[in-house]
Design a protein around this nucleic acid. Structure first.
Lengths: 174, 174
DNA sequence: GCCTCGCGTTCTTTATATCGAACGATGCGA
DNA sequence: TCGCATCGTTCGATATAAAGAACGCGAGGC
């Protein structure tokens, strides 16, 4: 087991923990671990047993494999990070993306194929989004639809923004 | 970690080993383990460290996840699986969930706190969703908003459904 | 100011996963 | 037959993962 992989694992656990706004002590208690063990693990110098990882996966509500496997490198353009969550297999084809704009980051996207629409739903921060000339300002809990077969953009404000994006392809792409 | 899961893991490793016509000693040597350790592991009374599993996965040439028969623990009620993707830290607080309804599964949710709204966005399958009495049928790429401070439900049809759900809390919960 | 609490880290101690040696069983050739 | 492999198991010794106590730090409250 490489040190880098252990490091990654630790970071991943810490990330999932913070997403839930849990303190290290809290997660340790929920999982029935000593917080010292969890601390070492998150720092990346530990070689945890299966049981330990299992307990954490249960509490964090993630499939076990997700803790270890490094997810495909999220692509990042101009301060906007995108990670594919899911791609449907029905008709129309729909993709779900987890998106994050760093503060003041702005991404201008070229027109996609005809008929493609997108739908953005903000989780935190404020986001300017939409077809060029018809952008809308969205806050947490707000969402909007727009046509993606024209130039469009995503822009975070002072605090950046985290949002879900679904892309709807009118017929099977490619 | 349940004894059954450990048992399963051991059987799985033994199975993969025998598929390759390797003796226990041989695999142990290749992986740099004591054969006693491997023996105990295959019998299902061991709690291996991540490093140990890692070495075995490499020698057996299987993705790590394949060793652990995936028995994840996202919360699951009545055939509806939910996994938290992200929780915002702004105001209002917004949670993003990845949801999956098995075919014909139906989940009736009680009223949440006052003012809470939800927003569902379908990735694949067809979903009946909404406040009780005002349900809507959604297909891939469609979405809708509804009040969650009343009884509401999620129901997949013949093929089940995968969708994103955002929950918007008017003020900080708890 | 002081006190208390919860945070995450770093120690020491304890439990246990791994190791290495020895074992009985089985197969095979001399 | 015996002798010598190799198999998988079991045992005591050792390395180390996890537990538990103590630490320094920062945020409130009085």
């Amino acid at each position: 087991m490489t040190p880098e992989a252990l490091q990654q694992l630790g970071q991943r656990i810490g990330q999932l923990r913070r997403q839930r706004h849990w303190s290290l002590s809290h997660l340790a208690e929920r999982a029935g671990l000593a917080k010292s063990s969890l601390s070492r693990l998150e720092q990346g110098n530990a070689n945890p047993t299966l049981d330990t990882l299992w307990r954490l996966a249960i509490q964090l509500e993630v499939p076990f494999a997700e803790l270890i496997i490094d997810d495909p490198a999220p692509l990042d353009e101009g301060g906007v990070t995108a990670r594919l969550i899911e791609r449907g297999r029905g008709t129309p084809v729909v993709e779900a993306w987890w998106m994050q704009c760093r503060p003041h980051a702005c991404r201008r996207a070229e027109a996609h194929g005809a008929g493609i629409r997108e739908h953005a739903s903000v989780i935190s921060g404020r986001l300017l989004v939409g077809s060029e000339g018809e952008e809308r300002q969205l806050g947490p809990g707000e969402h909007c639809d727009f046509a993606a077969d024209r130039r469009h953009l995503y822009r975070g404000d002072d605090e950046g923004a985290t949002f879900l994006l679904t892309i709807v392809y009118p017929q099977r792409p490619l």
